[in-house]
Amino acid sequence: MELEITKKRSGITTIIGLLSFLVALVALASLNIGLLLDSDEFPDFFLVRLPMIGLALGVVGLFTKKNSRLYAFWGIGLCLFILLFTFMMFGLAWMINPKP
């Protein structure tokens, strides 16, 4: 009985970090697709909302005691990168060849 509870706990806590990492990877993959397709209209969902979710999951994953927090770190890192990327690209694209 007790054994089961412990197993379950460790499962959930690992999964939050892993989930954050996976969400970040999905967002990153879609960012790649967007960049390689060279399309101007790319859904915000992948560039803003999904990384936000990943970030939140990663932060939760950080505060779980058991298991390695490696996934959570990666999840947070990647999500922050995507958000920063989106933000910077807006600014930079506006700076290059500006048109009113």
Partner: peptide, 22 residues
């Protein structure tokens, strides 16, 4: 997962540094 992440970072990092450069 980490290899995947690194691979997927290549294009965005190159794009970002290109835009920074220009």
């Amino acid at each position: 997962l980490i290899s995947l992440a690194v691979l997927l970072l290549i294009v965005p990092v190159l794009t970002l540094s290109t835009y920074l450069y220009y």
